[in-house]
Design a protein around this nucleic acid. Sequence first.
DNA 1: CTTACATGTTGACGCTGTACACATCTTTCT
DNA 2: AGAAAGATGTGTACAGCGTCAACATGTAAG
Lengths: 235, 235
Amino acid sequence: MTDRPAAPGRSGYHHGDLRNALTRAATALAREGGPQAVVLRAAARATGVSPTAAYRHFRGQGDLLRAVKFEALARLADRMEAAGADHPGADGESVVARLRSAGRAYVRFALDEPGLFRAAFSHHPDPTASMGGARSEVPSAAEEFCPEAGAWDDRAFRLLSDVMDALLDAGLLAPERRPGAEVSAWAAVHGVAMLLLDGPLSHLSSAQAETAIVRTVDDMLRGILEAPSGETHGT
Amino acid sequence: MTDRPAAPGRSGYHHGDLRNALTRAATALAREGGPQAVVLRAAARATGVSPTAAYRHFRGQGDLLRAVKFEALARLADRMEAAGADHPGADGESVVARLRSAGRAYVRFALDEPGLFRAAFSHHPDPTASMGGARSEVPSAAEEFCPEAGAWDDRAFRLLSDVMDALLDAGLLAPERRPGAEVSAWAAVHGVAMLLLDGPLSHLSSAQAETAIVRTVDDMLRGILEAPSGETHGT
DNA sequence: CTTACATGTTGACGCTGTACACATCTTTCT
DNA sequence: AGAAAGATGTGTACAGCGTCAACATGTAAG
């Protein structure tokens, strides 16, 4: 009676919001240390709870990591949306500025929060897979966020698609080049982020990194927006 | 007397080539299972050797993983070089074909050998770091390959640089755009590979993936090669 | 009030990375 | 040649991890 079951207040034995508390703790672990630091027992310890208690809310460590992954993706989307909101116009210049700003926010997030970024794009082999029978288990964290497996059409992707649509409306993007334009843009930004983080560019100074980012975004933007005059085409 | 100490033959007690044997075993582990599957004890077991024997040749598990990383990077470079050798010409068309071919080889490697590719770009916190004293330990695997820490100016990067130089010589790349051109190209290819592997494009069919790859490479190539007419520039 | 369920606890198992002490093979010095 | 020195591999041990099974404790439904 002191607190409702769904309320985050704790009543001594029952925590009341363990799932989110564990996700928070695990995310904090990933924040410093990356996906490797997401260790179930540590998260439980930080939450003041027994390790096996986590199994009431997650299928296991892999599932916990998956929750962290979606959490990290959400924060990444937050940053991108916030950056895009600075340029709300529909004219060509504003849309391009919005795209550029979102791209910079993407890479900036990767460099500011390397642990979360790495967790967001970490790979984990299917936990508790290859089962052909009962499914009355815990919801598995993936089904919490997206109805379809594998297709995390989350806010970041939608934001990118919207910007591309705006580019189309502004007449800067040729209609026949519209489909698939998100892929190129995303790939360039994601690639430079990864190379700066764990790749051959990891030793660059901040200034050099900024140059590399701007350069990559500029190049890709030019390639996407370039009017189709028909040249430099091989196969 | 039956075999020389440096020869790979085994003499019962001393293995003779344990370091490479362990690296091979660990690489095989990474090949299926990615960096997470690189477990020291398993590699030792596969080599028929005690777990602690590995510590004579590696600083620990992280160091072993690092060796796998360099091995994977070397194999990636192999593929790129092999692909580039199909178009050896110095004329513009050949150079562009070479660049495109190398890029496709890059992504193809990522999709063919996801475990190795993930290991090649895996991140590990410095093992046995924050020590301020003696350094008479095992050479640490990183110093085996590159003299300078962090700067793995390996064959893949060199190949890309050479192609960019060739583009410059062929008159397809404006000289003021030469510096940093590798970054954009690499970022696009690496990004699309990662997105196809662990990102939002992981559920694409092979045909769709191929389309995405070609599209990304085309866009980036266009952006890099586009003659500097001075447009679509913000800041 | 009692029964069923959800949620958290304790204990245990096998696995991992790693440190320490010891054994054995190889080389080198006298 | 023989002995000391070093390199290389073995065995044992410990803490920490993920996970399972059995049990305890709250909460809700009849």
